[in-house]
Amino acid sequence: MNTANHSAGLADRPAKIEVRDLSLVFGVGDKAVHALGPINLSVGDGEFLSIVGPSGCGKSTLTKVVAGLLPPTKGEVDIRLAGTSIAPIATVFQDYGIFPWKTVLENVKFGLTVNGVTGSEATDRAAMWVQKLGLAGFENRYPSSLSGGMQQRVSIARALAVEPEILLMDEPFASLDAQLRELLQEELLRLHESDGRTVLFVTHSLEEALVLGDRVLVLTARPGTLLDLKDVPFARPRTSEVRESREFNEMRYELWSHLKDQVHIGVTGDAS
């Protein structure tokens, strides 16, 4: 991949995910909650799209629709799959992602086992990802004996082990402390830059969104619609040092000034 054109060439890439007039409403009648949309969006093949927005704006809902966990109320989402991976889409969740009743290795193997990859092939593949995410030596431990950061590494390893075409990450680092979060961000940058898979990354941190993303999608307060869609100009390979630059901070400030009103609407809207 030509890293110099990484972000500049986004428009030319074929769309991997095409969101058309997507709306989600939970419940019916008086209790209906309009959670998301209508929203239109096109995510390029190999793009890292960060999604931010005020709490309850439907960021997670959007990834759940792509994951096939929620059906759209209106509109459609087209996902163009090459059919090359063991499981086309994998998700990393904030909580309850990994199974406490499976060891680290069993967890990483899970996506392989249930998709027909078994035996030594599954073990070898899982072991490789265990290694890649710095979990070697912990293969036979149960998640409850690991730190939060380690648990999230297991979750990422499990998602990547199936070599998905699309990786969905729903606030994966939200419950980690700041230092650990930066460390995992670096790792994620490296992984993404080496494999170039399409990533939807939901976060509540503008900083995280800018460090990682090719573009940042900012959603309005509920129901979440497109407020802003910004190209992130920083060249790849990127390190998290990018956050020290002036440009970075100006961009973050600009996004925050847009988002601030929405957060306000979200808060007062909920309170009334």
Partner: peptide, 17 residues
């Protein structure tokens, strides 16, 4: 917790598995 079920569903798991 729904999270466990969602995690499995997102890998295409259902039924017996």
């Amino acid at each position: 917790p729904n999270g466990y079920l969602d995690a499995a569903k997102s890998f295409g798991v259902k039924g017996w598995a």
